[in-house]
């Protein structure tokens, strides 16, 4: 099932600005797209509109070329798993997982069988008669996922599926979601504010900033080629140099920097990820000065001034030990790590 959002706009009553603006997005059949963005970007609003719990002001939501808008939530074949998706506290785990099947009026023998198989798949066999408060956080989360998947939805919506779990459980849950999604091939839209979560869960990432789609691409593409300065900043970009692209090179305060062959001509902003900067002697190295050194645990951040421009580099602590504030430092900007954001993109 292919999900298409077409120019969705939603303004809450009393709000000055729309929460979601002209959002168009396609989630290909069987694919997993992560809707990534800071809190308040409108991600959950999009989810609720797709699930049918909220009506968009304008625009269309289509699943396999049929509009979902006229359908009430229970007839869309779209299942949303809510953040903090608590299991219903008054029902047992098995009753929770069988809830949707019961609502559809299926015979209890069939419900029993399908719930049993589903519980086994998420490794909760034997816990069916427990109440939610008798289950661990991870078990509850797996139960909530099972409760949605047992319905074989045409489209699965996951709202921050890993946000309430500790590190070990996140890893486990992440693996389970990926495995189940591959097995069932259910088209899936995941909402998350955590870029690392988006990368591991999804085939494609749609970055939502301020209610608008800022970029939609494969995860590594967004990191390597952010479409705007805002996108670059959201994914951790810190180094920005204004300048102009002329004949395959970038002219800026640092001089002429050769660019990868696909760079487009015109004014733009050069960006390079802090971990891509190379320190120490090299053929294209330039000399700058260390301004600040901050130990961050597994990495150390060096703030460097190069030709009057501030740049940040992330390096291994071992490497950083050689550079103290005030020291001269040699810096190279590898050609394949440079990316120019055309100014038109903001």
């Amino acid at each position: 099932m292919t999900l298409e959002l077409h120019l969705l706009t939603k303004t809450y009553p009393g709000a000055v600005r729309p929460t979601v603006r002209d959002l168009s997005l396609t989630v290909p059949r069987g694919g997993v797209t992560a809707l990534l963005g800071p809190s308040g970007a409108g991600k959950t609003t999009v989810m609720r509109m797709v699930a049918g719990l909220l009506a968009p002001d304008t625009g269309d939501i289509r699943l396999d070329d049929r509009s979902l808008l006229p359908l009430p939530p229970e007839r869309r074949g779209v299942v949303m798993v809510f953040q903090n998706a608590p299991l219903f506290p008054h029902l047992t785990l098995a009753e929770n997982v069988g809830f949707g099947l019961r609502m559809r009026g299926l015979p209890s023998a069939e419900i029993h069988d399908r719930v049993g198989a589903m519980l086994e798949r998420v490794q909760l066999s034997g816990l069916g008669s427990r109440r939610p408060h008798q289950l661990s956080g991870g078990q509850q989360q797996r139960g909530a996922l099972a409760r949605a998947l047992v319905l074989k939805p045409r489209l699965l919506l996951l709202d921050e599926p890993l946000s309430n779990l500790d590190a070990a459980l996140r890893e486990e849950m992440r693996g389970l979601i990926r495995a189940l999604q591959r097995e069932t091939g259910i088209t899936t839209l995941v909402v998350t504010h955590d870029q690392s979560e988006a990368i591991v869960l999804a085939d494609r990432v749609a970055l939502l900033l301020d209610g608008r789609l800022a970029q939609e691409a494969e995860p590594d593409e967004i990191f390597a080629r952010p479409a705007s300065v805002a996108v670059a900043r959201f994914i951790g970009g810190v180094n920005f140099l204004p300048g102009r692209c002329v004949q395959g090179a970038f002219e800026c305060a640092l001089g002429r920097l050769p660019l990868p062959s696909d760079a487009s001509e015109g004014p733009g902003t050069l960006t390079i990820r802090p971990e891509a900067l190379r320190l120490g002697p090299g053929p294209d190295a330039r000399v700058g000065q260390v301004l600040e050194r901050t130990f961050l645990g597994s990495q150390t951040r060096l703030t460097i001034v190069l030709a009057g421009q501030r740049l940040e580099a992330l390096v291994a602590p071992d490497t950083a030990r050689h550079f103290a504030p005030g020291d001269p430092i040699q810096v190279s900007l590898p050609v394949d790590a440079l990316w120019v954001i055309p100014d038109a993109a903001g």
Binding site: P73, E74, F82, F99, A148
Partner: peptide, 26 residues
């Protein structure tokens, strides 16, 4: 918490079913 109602709705419960099976028990 009305998220229970939304969750039930999304799992395929009609409004009266949400009332009967989720809100009323709560």
């Amino acid at each position: 918490d009305t998220v229970h109602e939304d969750q039930a709705r999304s799992l395929g419960a009609a409004p009266w079913q949400v009332w009967r099976h989720v809100t009323l028990p709560a």
